[in-house]
Design a protein around this nucleic acid. Structure first.
Length: 413
RNA sequence: CGGGGAGUAGCGCAGUUUGGUUCAGCGCGUUUGGUUUGGGACCAAAAGGUCGUGGGUUCGAGUCCCACCUCCCCGACCA
């Protein structure tokens, strides 16, 4: 991609009103644009990051044998009345009527829909187990949207649902999911913790939440200074670690994932049953597994930034490499930059060429703001010594290479 | 929903206390011309505004009063 042809609009400054680091950086880098409070457009750069996260999630979900589907956002209220979550969710649910007066809502989550769906097909133990997941937009009319994508009224979630014939099967898939979640968050470049949590509105017996320590996190966790254990902050204020009886440190964190052992809560309501080997009817044992995908973006930025801008972890970066000719009016410099760009593109790398006729300072500032992992600068040193400069956004380390060695140079970094 | 703050050019803001030739302003950005060219350059010219909306007070309202809308922050609730 040539920068001059892209829809990248950076800002020198963001409104004082945007107070969290990640929100300000997302606005300045031109990743998102607010339409109304809690509702955002993902601009091309933001969408690239979203797609990268989705790719990681799909790989990890598919690797444990789960299958992707896509369920509707428009849902009938009757489904929600069956579990009485209609009342529980209250005004968080966005409700409306169709032209025939049928009461509908925009799905805040999908336990009801997926259980109803499964009940239409499952009859025998031979149909089990299986896992379905989707990546989809959820709607929740939050009391107070905040920090950009951290708490939005329209947000993107990965929700997976497991169906087993017994609790042993559930335990097994739950464990696999847990490990897949660890992989996902690691690949996203996140430092995270998982703790046993309160199942809350979703219900069930056991649940774990995955939290990312962040200054602007809405949740609180406690860390034991001695044993390093993390404890949920949902309980009343805790003073000492139950094991070590020593002081705890209070840490703010963002909840990015939550997994639940649902048991038969939903299958009982929707009559999701199967016949076992002996011909006896039994309820299907369910689990559900959510990741707040759109929220992952600010979570990643909260943990990966400096005074100059974002520092994308490798796998989620919108581009792998930014090629920066210091002066595009210099034919030698610009043609060398184009050559580097073409070589790397051929190698299937995601490259952006800053071909704008701007001063070097502006381009360097924008490069730092965008946070592309590697920057290749072509300028004076190329004219004098035929060297191009490769700089790591993260380590700030700079190396010089001959143009014809560029492939190998990039590979090693 | 309770409490606090804000809305003036594309972005960021000043002006509102004390209404009136400093009231349509500043910085950045944009356009044109020129000089520059390794960390947000400089000179010259130009475009861009129903001062959130509606009503009121007044000879006169960005400024005072009333109502409404919108956004941000703290709290309760959540991925």
């Amino acid at each position: 991609m040539y920068w001059s042809k892209s829809f990248i609009h950076t800002l020198k400054e963001a409104s004082e009103e945007a107070e969290s680091t990640s929100h300000r950086l997302m606005l300045r880098a031109g990743m998102i644009k607010m339409l109304i409070s809690g509702v955002y457009s993902y601009l091309p750069l933001g969408l690239k990051v979203l797609d990268n996260i989705n790719k990681i999630i799909r790989q990890e979900m598919n690797a444990l044998g789960s299958q992707e589907l896509l369920m509707p956002s428009i849902q009938p209220i009757e489904l929600w009345q069956m579990t009485k979550r209609d009342e529980l969710l209250g005004e968080v649910m966005i409700r409306f009527q169709d032209r025939r007066g049928r009461k509908l809502c925009l799905g805040p989550t999908h336990e009801e829909v997926v259980t109803d769906l499964a009940s239409r097909y499952i009859q025998s133990y031979r149909d089990l187990p299986f896992v379905l997941y989707q990546i989809q937009t959820k709607f929740r009319d939050e009391l107070r949207p905040r920090f950009g994508l951290v708490r939005a009224c329209e947000f993107i979630m990965k929700d997976a649902y497991s169906f087993d014939k017994d609790t042993e099967g559930l335990d097994e898939i739950y464990d696999k999911m847990y490990k897949a979640y660890e992989n996902i968050f690691k690949r996203c470049g996140l430092d995270f913790v998982s703790i046993k949590a309160d199942p809350g509105v979703i219900g069930g017996d056991v649940s774990h939440e995955f939290l990312v320590p962040a200054e602007n996190g809405e949740d609180v966790v406690y860390k034991c200074n001695i044993c390093g254990n993390y404890l949920s902050g949902n309980d009343a204020e805790i003073d000492v670690c139950p094991h070590c009886k020593k002081d705890l440190t209070k840490i703010n964190a963002l909840e990015v994932g939550h997994i639940f052992k649902l048991g038969t809560k939903y299958s009982d309501v929707f009559g999701l049953r199967y016949l076992d080997e002996s011909g006896k009817e039994r309820p299907v044992i369910m689990g559900c597994y959510g990741i707040g995908i759109s929220r992952l973006i600010p979570a990643i930025i909260e943990q990966n930034n400096d005074a100059d801008g974002i520092i994308w972890p490798k796998e989620v970066a919108p581009y792998d490499i930014l090629v920066l000719p210091v002066n595009v009016t210099d034919k030698d410099i610009f043609s060398a930059a184009k050559k580097v760009y073409e070589i790397l593109e051929k190698k299937k790398m995601k490259v952006i060429l800053d071909d704008r006729d701007e001063r070097a300072g502006i381009k360097f500032k924008d490069a730092d703001l965008l946070g592309i992992p590697l920057r290749i600068t072509i300028g004076e040193k190329f004219l004098k010594e035929k060297k191009v400069e490769i700089k790591s956004r993260k380590s700030k380390e700079v190396k010089l290479f001959n143009l014809d060695k560029i492939e190998e140079a990039v590979k090693g970094l």
